[in-house]
Design a protein around this nucleic acid. Sequence first.
DNA 1: AACTCGGGGCA
DNA 2: TGCCCAGAGTT
Length: 214
Amino acid sequence: MNANEILDEMEKLYPNAECELKHETPFQLLVAVVLSAQTTDESVNKVTPALFAAYPTSKAMAQASLSDIESYIRRIGLYRNKARSILKLSQDLEEKFHGEVPSSYKDLMSLAGVGRKTANVVRSVAFDIPSFAVDTHVDRISKRLGLAKPYDSVEKVEEKLKRKIDRDRWNRGHHEFIFFGRYLCHSRNPECYRCPFIDICKKDKVDAYLKKKA
DNA sequence: AACTCGGGGCA
DNA sequence: TGCCCAGAGTT
């Protein structure tokens, strides 16, 4: 089963896979993805409605105080770093990008709190530019399904996925991986009894590598 | 490459 | 109580 065939199967399981972070604009998506680091999207969706009601645009958020922003997102982890990031990010959008979220990878990466994964998700979801963001789900799934080696870096995983998957399927494919990881192939107790990839799964080898490294 | 940030959810 | 979660910045 090649990578595109794996995607075919995932699309049967999750025909409606898409970004689950609540947002109405590219700016709100950008903020939501920054907030989602090391946290579930479910947790982020609990705080963003009030946050975006208070600060719907970068212009509004750029004028907020750090402590006010913190008060909205205190319930999720890493909130001090994240509050600093989204305040600085809003100010930079106003001062350097005329209040508009840039679409280039380089410009996105220049923003506070935006790294490889966030830049790719924003390009994919907000601008529909072919991207393949590698996060913990994508990394884990790729290695279990043999699309990458257990020791591959995230850069290597992204490179291999882009090479093995048709370009016009990158954006949809990313979310298929996410759904598969979230709802079936969990980090700890995956539901292998109903997995269509049980015959090609290399979870044992991946686990053995991780155990040896630890 | 390793370390740190961090509250909430779940066993 | 202990461990993990749609990562990024610093060293």
